[in-house]
Design a protein around this nucleic acid. Sequence first.
RNA 1: CGGGACGUAGCGCAGUCCGGUAGCGCACCUGAAUGGGGUUCAGGGGGUCGCGGGUUCAAAUCCCGCCGUCCCGACCA
Length: 489
Amino acid sequence: MADDKKLTPRASDFSAWYNEVVLRAELADYAPVRGCMVIRPNGYGIWERMQHALDGMFKATGHRNAYFPLLIPQSYLHKEAQHVEGFAPETAVVTHGGGKELEEPLIVRPTSETIIYSMFAKWVQSYRDLPLLINQWANVVRWEMRTRLFLRTLEFLWQEGHTAHATHDEAEEETRSILGIYREFMEKWMAMPVVTGLKSENEKFAGALRTYTLEAMMQDNKALQAGTSHNLGQNFAKAFELKFQSEEGKEEFAWNTSWGVTTRMVGALVMTHGDDNGLVTPPKLAPIEVVIVPIWKTDDEKARLTENADRIAKTLREWGGRGEDQLRVHVDARAGMRAGEKYYEWELRGIPLRLEVGPRDLAANQCVLARRDTREKTTASLDGIAGTVGALLERMQGAMFAAARERREAHSVREPMTYDKFRELMEGDGAFVYAGWNGDPAVEVKVKEETKATIRVLPDPEFRSPSAPTKCMVTGEPAKVEVMWARAY
RNA sequence: CGGGACGUAGCGCAGUCCGGUAGCGCACCUGAAUGGGGUUCAGGGGGUCGCGGGUUCAAAUCCCGCCGUCCCGACCA
């Protein structure tokens, strides 16, 4: 009977566990259209905090928000050869409007390079108009065959940055700089470690010169691409006649970058930190950081405890320890519910800290603090409670990142291994496997067919092994580069 | 689009083989006792059994057609 209330344990069926957490923590729900998802207030609250943090980082680096249309003439998609090849199969097409067949079908944007660079071409004449640094928060549609809540839906929310520069080097610097912003966000806010670096030719964005990626490890040891930053070279500038007159008076094509992160990050958060009791949210992204649960028996106590809970909430909110950033506190004074039932509910929703206060605590001028990440309970004096709570939340943020990184390292392999061993590992627990590669795309295709694993990233120097691998794991030929292999979502 | 499974209350399911008044658990509503980790008892509301047709005195159940969903593959932030 009680089993109905329990979650599927993570270890027994990770996918079922994930779905249950998303649905039961009320992050999202299935929509009537297959593959689409409704993001509920609990889930949107987390997304909003993500948006806010990222938006601040983009603005601080000179980017400005704009908005471009949902509908794009189909011919635009065809102007960049690789781009159309990559996206045409998964675009939704509008063929009718106003009851009539359209002369030219419109596509629902799967991404906005084409429409944005066609506009950039009108806006840019001189090198003085560059760099042009634009971001948009929008929804896009990609007609995926198989979908998963947050990780892959037909329609999703994202931010897509698009920039134009006068030189290749400046565009490359922008691409890397954005990768740094994403990394900082994922590590500091999401408490989620990532491996950064370059995508292989097979895996890069359709139409890009180079694609940089951030790869995170989920708790089933599979990789999730958490964000990308592309150096588009002059591919789109040439397709859309995005030209400018240089300081020397010459006509030149601009250099573009594009980059994005999506609501997939909400799914990543669940899969990185969640446990058998549900969601665990890092304090910085939690719409509610502290839930106060007053405990009472009699009506008399109820009035007294509720009043004191409100008073504690006020003390927490008025604490100035984080400057303008007020502690986000909720008091759960619902009647007719046992305290234990409330605890399970808030744990399922991932609220970082629970503050319990009952008659006995009040008499002793103390309360109980229960951490969501470790589920440890301690008692704390009500004197200076705001400072105690503020400091604890900050420690938790750091502890969650450390724990996630430790877990990832425990499932990362850097020792040279045979291809047979690798196959065995991928069939079993899975891992991030760092190994040498001869640089041949055919090897990557073969490995994908045989093991479902792909080259997730050509890691940046700080993620590479202390001594560079000398041989290709698959062919035994001399290695051209170190790569990280894993199965991915 | 290929292979498999399934559509019965908000959710999870039994009932279908062998036709005979629509069931169970959770959730929801009312009342009481309980109350520091999912409490208990009593009462109650809620269903065109995916849709359409056929067989039959009688269909959730048998037959035909359609629709939809999920899982495995190909695709992907």
